[in-house]
Write a protein that binds this DNA or RNA. Structure first.
Lengths: 110, 110
DNA sequence: CTGCATCCTTCGGGATACTG
DNA sequence: CAGTATCCCGAAGGATGCAG
């Protein structure tokens, strides 16, 4: 019989990385803004708090999806970009966006 | 300036439907088992509890992704299948699975 | 076999204030 | 400007028992 668990279902692994309320939208934002500054993200990603933004960015960094460049300036400046590996998410983001649009269309009719 | 919120970012809509701990894996399981019986899913989706399974299936049904067919038999029998709309998730599931594999490969090297 | 109700726990997410 | 440190809450997730 087929079995679906964390080991045999890679879908789960992806969802862990992209899951939660902010990860996907952040990847998307950085992808379209690159390089993205911290304050810039804070302004463009509506509703996210500073602490959440910091936390989520760290987790994405730990997963190797984004890289963080610190400029030793006053005032401080930090830029985020997708890593090469993070860029491999592009097709997924694209299909997620497309499907989201289709889903909305469907909901509207109802 | 670009803005990323729930209205302008369809990715978010998709993640709401596919988010949480079980949705994606359930879609995947039903896709590969169709038609899938309740008990069958309970056995194949490792770690899920009965109540969670029921709840998640209902939500997927409400979103129009799966359909539920009840057989008036003793013992009871219920079958779940992806709806036509649910099937449009197939390419996403595929890319999620592929990326998950790549992610694992990368983690192994580290 | 399938499903609901109840109760409980965990943790993701958030508000606020403070720092270099 | 970018980030940390606390404290807090609600919802997601889970265990268990009962029912058709």
């Amino acid at each position: 019989m087929l079995v679906f668990d964390e080991k045999s279902c890679p879908v789960t692994a992806t969802m862990k990385v992209l899951g939660g309320k902010w990860k996907a939208i952040l990847i998307n934002a950085i992808y379209h803004t690159s390089p993205a500054r911290f304050g810039e993200l804070k302004r463009s990603v509506k509703g996210i708090t500073q602490s959440m933004l910091t936390q989520q960015l760290r987790e994405l960094e730990d997963d190797g999806l984004i890289s963080r460049k610190i400029y030793a300036e006053i005032p401080p400046k930090v830029e985020y970009t997708l890593t090469e590996f993070g860029l491999t998410l592009a097709p997924i983001m694209q299909s997620l966006a497309n499907w989201g649009l289709a889903y909305r269309m469907k909901k509207q009719k109802e």
